[in-house]
């Protein structure tokens, strides 16, 4: 599909374009919509956003590249970003992240073979009192430990298995 002329996004796109006196300001919210549609910021998405915001595609691409929350390659269904910054690290976030990667059997930034999980570490997420924590597809999961994560991961794996049957 596409985000242009897609009834699923029409209202949201119009809303974002109406918020600002200059269409260019809508580039960030519209890149999120493109990412939602394609699973990452694809070349098609960049061209569509450029058209909507009246920008050069190169400019849109530079915006997508500057900010860490836009991904220019496909991710797993669940994109896990663990904060391992100082405050979280003081409460065991480095060890937590290391164990999480080991449990998923992936390297930093890697995706599991079943395409379910991508995991990486990120800078401060403003939840320092609830470490270890991570954001999963931009929603926070807090006060974690490996046992909790294992249970959650297995739950998601079971869901996938059920769907594929």
């Amino acid at each position: 599909m596409a985000i242009l002329n897609n009834p699923k996004y029409e209202d949201r796109i119009q809303w974002h374009l109406s918020k600002y006196p200059d269409k260019r300001s809508a580039v960030m919210p519209l890149l999120y919509i493109a990412q939602e549609e394609y699973g990452y910021v694809s070349q098609e998405g960049i061209l569509e956003v450029a058209q909507l915001c009246d920008m050069d595609p190169t400019q849109v691409k530079s915006i997508a590249g500057f900010y860490t929350m836009y991904s220019e390659k496909p991710k797993g269904r669940y994109w896990l970003q663990t904060c391992t910054d100082l405050a979280c690290a003081l409460r065991g976030a480095d060890e937590f992240h290391h164990d999480l990667l080991a449990y998923l059997e992936i390297e930093e930034g890697g995706t599991t073979a079943d395409g379910l999980f991508t995991a990486e570490h990120v800078m401060c997420l403003a939840a320092c009192d609830k470490a270890p924590m991570l954001q999963c597809n931009f929603h926070f999961m807090e006060n974690l430990d490996l046992a909790k994560m294992k249970a959650w991961i297995e739950e998601k794996r079971a869901e996938l298995e059920k769907q594929s049957k």
Binding site: K19, P29, L31, Y32, Y67, T68, Y70, C124
Partner: peptide
Amino acid sequence: VYTHLGAGAY
């Protein structure tokens, strides 16, 4: 009054 989301840049 509007909200605007950044995208991960300190």
